[in-house]
Amino acid sequence: MEYIIIIISAIFVNNIVLSQFLGVCPFLGVSNKLSTATGMSGAVCFVITLATLVTYLLNKYLLVPFGLEFLQTIAFILVIASLVQMVEIVLKKISPSLYQALGIFLPLITTNCAVLGVAITVVTKDFTFGAESHMLNLGQAIVYAVATSIGYGLAMVLFAGLREHLALNEVPKSFRGLPIAFITVGILALAFLGFSGIV
């Protein structure tokens, strides 16, 4: 039951872009075309899940036992940066086709605050399940990471679709480019507000 709550909450109710505002820069940057949007979502899903796994274990077995929680920020960003590098090298060797597909998006992900945001959230925040609330265990953390990146992908694909239509319309001069994009995301976020209260 807790897993279902985590999944619904992460995808719809607390959507990472539309209600938590994480990863907005790449969200706006690569959502011009549907194909790049799906590529980026795939890469983000991969890295968020892997980064959450590693940082969760690092926090639980290294930082907490030695009382070094204050190093979380530094340790996590270093882990994420090197993880992205490693994933790039390994993918290049093992699966060149996947590397080709994700290639250009991988370096961008280090500075995607969604990755660091999820890694910090799972080790610091209490999650509410009905009456009780507690920190996530490893399994739940992984499920949360996967569901969050599905939510990211959903928002990105929806927005890319809207943006492709937007490109065909006549937009007033001052609205062109990012302003109209922000207003569109705003309306999309209003729609997602309708999910609040489900869990």
């Binding site: 001052s174 990012l178 302003p179």
Partner: peptide, 15 residues
């Protein structure tokens, strides 16, 4: 809430 942030930023950018 969340939608207001995007809308306000969008319209301020227009101005």
């Amino acid at each position: 809430m969340a939608p207001g942030a995007f809308l306000v930023l969008g319209y301020l950018m227009v101005l």
